[in-house]
Amino acid sequence: MSKQWMFDEKADFLAKLRELVDGGVDPHDLETMTPFPVHEADHILHTRTSRLRFFTLAGTLTGLIAGFAFTIFTVMDWPLITGGKPLISLPPFLVIAFELTILLGGILSFVGFLALARLPSVKNVLQPPKEYGNRFVIQQRGEE
């Protein structure tokens, strides 16, 4: 049986949350819904740091390596001398690699976010659940 508490004030919401956790409720059974992120709730629920950072790291590293690899490959594939500069011109390639680092870092972070937050939630789009508006909500999953 699941239980639900709704609050209009953030302080009340936090007090209840603390009470529940101190009362021995497993934090994994508790779900909150708030109009904005409430960091104190994270503390109370002893949550693990988001794993998003691995996506970001993967993205930026891929971008960096791909930037240099791609540019060096193209220049070896079609070696043309321009302006007397050496074929493998690292300063310009660094610019490209830098941009790709940011680009792939951003894209992969976004993809990671969608994955981790389980969005888009097709179920919720098609059949929107109850809206709580600006209330702070705690839901406890009960055992069935």
Partner: peptide, 16 residues
């Protein structure tokens, strides 16, 4: 995207 404002959504959102 079917956003609900749950805690884990906010957490990843904040990090992103």
């Amino acid at each position: 995207l079917g956003w609900r404002g749950t805690r884990y959504q906010w957490e990843h959102y904040g990090k992103l």
